[in-house]
């Protein structure tokens, strides 16, 4: 290639390659946006938009079917603050979380440790404990209701056989929420077990051998020295996601107690459902939703922080 002709060409079309390269880059950007476009549109339409709408609706008095709506500022929140049912609902939700989280985490950790401890029937136990996690909760709630039936339910029959008094489990105000919490634990602990099993498997075997060499003779001392600290991040993580999940309790309440007896099982999502979809007070229901969202967001952010830290450990 002669120098002269090269120079002539680059003089004539100095900008051409740049423009053509830019065209190629534009084509790539176009591909990227058409690949993400549908997802972005749906995210805006079905997630981000609605969340913004909830926040705005919570500032209005909108009711489904009403011709107009008025901006009422924070009136809905003021109403919430003065609403005894709302406070009962919030307290019950927190109480439910406080019952389910230790139960489901403790039981999950316990069975995970027991399963990992020995050889036989590992996968059978694991499968058995996992079935409640995936079985349709609504169908199982109906089975629980039948077992808890006061006159011919299995639970009372067993108690009577042991000479103990039976109860009307779902109709006694002191019992209804704890009973729902037991069902919650029953459904959740298998999920936690799987997370713990994954955590246990990732503890290096040599650590136990080192602990044994260092004189940790009993199972308990090895648990304190190795298992618990190594499981620490997983434990924290499981605590938080159990809290998130139990905070969203709804199915069992809606089917088994409808928030009763005497609001003893009224929980946040049920209040939101009743206000929004039975009384159609959309504005008020939105205010409850915002409260619910704030709690879940805080817990989720805590979860994200834990995950981040775990990543940093390597």
């Amino acid at each position: 290639m002669a120098e002269a002709s090269l120079a002539a060409r680059s003089g004539a079309r100095a900008e051409a390659p740049r423009a053509l390269a830019a065209a190629l880059r534009r084509r790539q950007a176009l591909a990227a946006w058409s690949l993400t476009g549908p997802a972005l549109l749906l995210m805006a339409l079905l997630l981000i938009g609605p969340v913004a709408a909830v926040a705005l609706l919570s500032l209005t008095d909108y009711q489904l079917g009403a011709r107009s709506l008025a901006f009422v500022g924070l009136d809905n929140y003021a109403d919430l603050a003065g609403d005894r049912v709302f406070w009962t609902s919030l307290t019950n939700t927190l109480l439910y979380v406080a019952l389910v989280v230790p139960g489901a985490v403790g039981l999950g950790l316990g069975v995970a440790l027991l399963i990992e401890a020995g050889g036989s029937l590992k996968s059978l136990y694991r499968a058995v404990f996992f079935v409640p996690v995936m079985a349709t909760l609504i169908a199982m709630a109906i089975s629980w209701e039948f077992m808890l039936q006061p006159s011919f339910g299995l639970v009372n029959l067993c108690l009577r056989a042991l000479g103990l008094p039976g109860h009307n489990w779902l109709q006694e105000p002191d019992l209804a929420l704890p009973v729902l919490a037991v069902i919650g634990i029953w459904q959740l602990f298998g999920f936690n077990m799987v997370l713990f099993l994954a955590g246990l498997v990732s503890i290096p075997r040599q650590l136990y051998e080192a602990a044994a060499m260092d004189g940790a003779r009993s199972a308990w001392s090895r648990f304190r020295l190795v298992t618990l600290p190594m499981l620490g991040p997983v434990l924290l993580f499981v605590l938080v996601i159990s809290a998130i999940r139990s905070f969203q309790v709804f199915d069992t309440v809606q089917v088994l107690t409808k928030g009763g007896p005497a609001k003893a099982t009224e929980v946040l999502l049920y209040s939101m459902y009743a206000e929004g979809f039975e009384f159609f007070r959309s504005g008020y229901a939105s205010a409850i939703t915002v409260v619910f969202l704030v709690f879940v967001l805080i817990l989720t952010l805590v979860k994200a922080r834990i995950l981040e830290r775990r990543v940093h450990y390597g």
Binding site: S10, A16, P17, R18, A19, L20, A21, A23, L24, R25, R27
Partner: peptide, 22 residues
């Protein structure tokens, strides 16, 4: 190869300028 785009300069393959060609 055309997998990256240069910031400046030109490429010819055979006698063909390939800028903008996928």
């Amino acid at each position: 190869a055309g997998l990256e785009v240069q910031d400046a300069g030109r490429i010819r393959i055979g006698s063909r300028a390939v800028e903008g060609i996928a």
